[in-house]
Every structure is written in structure tokens, then in C-alpha cells.
Simulated scan of single mutants.
Amino acid sequence: MDKVVERERLSDSATHGRLRALIVDDEPLARRGLEIRLEAHPDVEIVGEYGDGLSAIAGLREHRPDLVFLDVQMPGMDGFETLRSIPAHEMPLVVFVTAYDHYAIRAFEASATDYLLKPVEETRLAQALARVQLARSQREASGHCAHLLGLLGELSGRPLLDLDEALKPDALEQLRRDDKLAVRDGGRTVRVDLASIRWIDAAGDYMCIHTDGPVDRAAPQGETLVLRATMRDLEKQLDPQRFPRIHRSTIVNARRVVELRPHTNGEGFLRLDCGQELKLSRTHRDKLALLL
């Protein structure tokens, strides 16, 4: 698309006030849920929906949207890798969609147009769209790139980056090596030391993160943080070498395991340094090498 056509598209979009948007998420239900909520916003036109980064990049080139709702956690090419593949002069406004606060809420608030936590709430969506409209009316392309540079630089721990440096693969890897996990527990957000996590288990639609108490690491009593998420979501965020899944509803901090006791039918019991016992299911016995 040449510069004249692009200017005409931007002018027409601004005149009518409508946002041409893409939805990029590997979960069909998540895409559908966002689509339903956007039906209440006639100023947004969904021009494409994609389930992976590669097809999203093709959609960006085809539709030249004003806005992309971009899922952070996708298999294969995730949200950050997708960003790395978009030329700076073609970068639309971006609203990140994530199931986890692990992706640095402070960085999103400071540097992104906005972010949404799954499941998306109608009031938060309205706030995000208001911020997007304001950003579109005020920003130049270079200004938006500066926002993204701030985000990616902060996530990588290297704030003074140019765009090419900020979008290198090690920016995301630095985030994944972070020693803290940001968890929204009710109305608060808590940054938890990964080393303090004992184990994680599922409770219906929620995950319980069992951590050390404030006084004694080895004490049986500790603190339990509860967040709305799935086991699959947490597995994406945690290093599987440090936090292997040992049961369909349990993830354990491998460094906290002190004893393995065999049980029947190929199952076993793990004892943690706090005294807690957890079942190792037969289907996850391949994790033994990580636990001993």
C-alpha cells in the first residue's frame, strides 16, 4: 500500500471515528467472547480474527488495522514474537490481552496503549477503547513506537534500546527468567518470589498458589494466593524445568522436593521441605528426573 492510499485510509478512519480492529488469540472461545463484547461498541469494526501469530501478521498486512487485540500467551509465535515481526512504520495501536499479571502490569500501564485481563470485563473493555481513541487522536506513529519501546525495554531490563534491539528474542527471555511472579489476589496484586512457591493446585476455576509464610520457610503454615486461571495458563508462564506438573491438578516447585515415596500402580508421593505431601500421578512419572 503506497503512502497516498495509506493517508487516505487513515483520514477516512479518523473522519468516521471507527476503529478497524483485529483480534488475535489462539483460543476460539476467547475470540468469540471479545467479539460479543465489542458488539456493544459501534465505533469498533472487527476486520479480522486470527488464532496464531503468523496468520495475524498476514492479516495486518492485508487489513492495515488501527488496533490489534493481541493475546500475549500463544503457542508457537506468541504475542511478543508477533510484535517483533511487524515493521515499525506499520505498527497499529496494541491492546494486550493476557490471562496473567506475570507480564508486568506496571510495564503495561506505563508503556502500552492498554491491557486487558482474561476474562475480559465490559467496563475494562470500555476504558481500554476510550484510551485507544484518545491515543489515536493524539499520537504520531513515532510516539506509539516509543510506547512500545518503553514496554519492551522495561520487560527486557534494558530500557535504553532502539526498536530493533527491543524486539530481539532475548527481551522476552529476560522476562521469563524473572525471579518474581505477579499475582492478582482479590483486589490486590502481589509480586511473589518464585523460590517461595511450594506448590500450585487447581480449585475449580481458580488456582491456589501455596507459598512460604512470612516468618519461617520450613513452617507448615504458609500463605495461599488465589487467582482465576487454568492449569494450562500457569504452565505457559512458569519454567517447566523448575515447576513441573506432577498431576492433572498440581504443579510443584522441584527445588522444594526432599523425598519421593513409591505408591501403587506406578504412582508416588512427594514430600516437600515444609512437610506437605503431594501425589505424583503415573502419567507424570517422566518428571522424576526433574524432582530428584
Rank of each mutant, 00 (worst) to 15 (best):
K3N: 02
V4Q: 10
V4S: 02
R7E: 13
L10K: 08
A14Q: 11
R18Q: 13
R20L: 13
L22M: 15
V24W: 10
D25G: 04
R31K: 08
R31M: 08
R32C: 01
G33Y: 01
E39D: 06
V47C: 14
D52R: 03
A58S: 11
E62R: 14
H63G: 05
P65W: 14
L70Y: 08
Q73G: 00
E81R: 07
L83M: 15
A88G: 10
A88T: 00
H89A: 00
V94Q: 09
V97A: 06
T98C: 13
A99V: 09
I105S: 09
R106C: 04
S111Q: 02
S111V: 02
A112H: 03
V120Q: 07
T123K: 15
A126V: 12
L134M: 12
R139P: 03
S142V: 08
S142F: 05
G143H: 13
H144D: 03
H147R: 07
G150L: 07
G153H: 03
L160M: 03
L163Y: 09
D164A: 07
D164Q: 05
Q174K: 03
R176W: 05
R176N: 04
R176F: 07
R176K: 09
D179E: 11
D179P: 11
V183R: 13
R184G: 06
D185N: 13
R191H: 15
L194S: 11
G204F: 14
Y206K: 11
I209S: 15
G213I: 06
P214R: 13
V215A: 14
A219F: 06
G222M: 08
T224D: 15
R228V: 01
T230A: 00
M231F: 03
L234H: 02
Q241D: 05
F243T: 01
R248S: 08
S249L: 04
T264Q: 09
T264W: 15
G266E: 12
K279S: 04
L280G: 00
A289W: 06
